[in-house]
Simulated scan of single mutants.
Amino acid sequence: SEILSRIKNLDFKNKKGIYNYITDISNEKELYSSAMRPHDDIKWLYLLPNNPNPLLGQFVAVNFKKSKLPFTDTTRNMLNILKGLYEIWNRPDYGEATYLIIAIAFLCSDKTARELSAELWIKTNSENTINNNLLGKVLGRLEHQEYGTLKRFTDLIMSNMFNISKKHNKNLLIVLDNMVSEMNDVPIKGVKKLLELFNELKVQFPDDEISQYTQQKLRVWKEVKSLKNLVNKILD
C-alpha cells in the first residue's frame, strides 16, 4: 500500500524517521508524549479488539525511533501490548501499525519482547489469523535501512520459531520471502544467516516458488562474493 511503501525511504538514524511514518497513518501533526502507562495499554486494547491500529500507531510514533527500548515504562508498555495482542488477536486484516508492532518486537533490544512476539506469531499461525505476507514486507521495510540488528531476528527464528510444525515452517518461508524482497540492494550485516535460514526452508518446500521481487533482490545480492553460492542454492 501507499503507507507501507513509505517505510523504505525513512532514515532511522533521523530521530523523526519512524515518527513521520506513523503520523502518515494517524494524521497526527505533532509529537505528543505517550499518555499510556503500564496496564492502561491492556485496557485500551480490550476496548479496541477489532481495531487496535490507532492506539498502536501513537505508541510506536512516540517510543520507537530506534530499536532500543528507551525507558523502563516503554519496555513495560511493549510487553503488556504484546500480551494483550496475544489475547485479543482474532483476524488477519489488522492494520499496518499492528503488524509494525510485531516487526519492531522481533528486532527490538528486549529479549522478553522478542520471545513474546514469537509466541504471538506461533499462535496466530496455528489459528490462521495472521497475514505473513504483510508481516514480511513490514520487516523488510524496517531492515531496508537496518532499523534493528538483524541477528536478533535470526537468533529468534532459530530458538523460538523454526521447526514448530510443517505449517509454521511454510509460513515462515512466506515471511522471509516477503522480507527479502523489500530489503536494500546493499545487503546489511547478518544477511548471510538470514539467507541460510531461507535456504533451509526452501529445501523443505521445493515446490513453493519465491516471488519475482525476491528473485531480483537475490540476483543483486549474488554480486557479493560471500553470498554468491548461497544465493545460487536458493535460486536453483
Rank of each mutant, 00 (worst) to 15 (best):
N199E: 11
Q212W: 03
G57F: 03
L227C: 08
F106P: 01
G190C: 07
N53H: 10
V175N: 08
T98W: 00
K43D: 10
R114F: 01
F205A: 08
T72A: 09
T154W: 06
I7C: 01
W89K: 12
K111L: 09
T129F: 01
Y213G: 05
Y46R: 15
N53P: 00
D73M: 05
Q215T: 14
G84I: 06
A105P: 04
N169I: 06
L197S: 04
E200V: 03
L55R: 13
I88Y: 07
Q212D: 08
N125G: 09
E96W: 03
L142R: 13
K166C: 12
F64W: 14
G148T: 12
L218T: 05
R6Y: 04
D41Q: 04
N184P: 02
V191G: 02
K228G: 00
Y147N: 13
L45V: 06
D207T: 10
N63E: 14
K225G: 01
V62W: 12
K222P: 00
V231Q: 07
N80G: 11
N9P: 00
Y147H: 07
K137I: 10
E96S: 08
D41P: 00
K137L: 11
L135A: 08
F198D: 05
L227P: 04
L194S: 12
T214V: 03
D155L: 13
Y19E: 13
L10H: 01
I174F: 01
E182V: 05
N184W: 00
T98L: 02
N128G: 08
K225E: 14
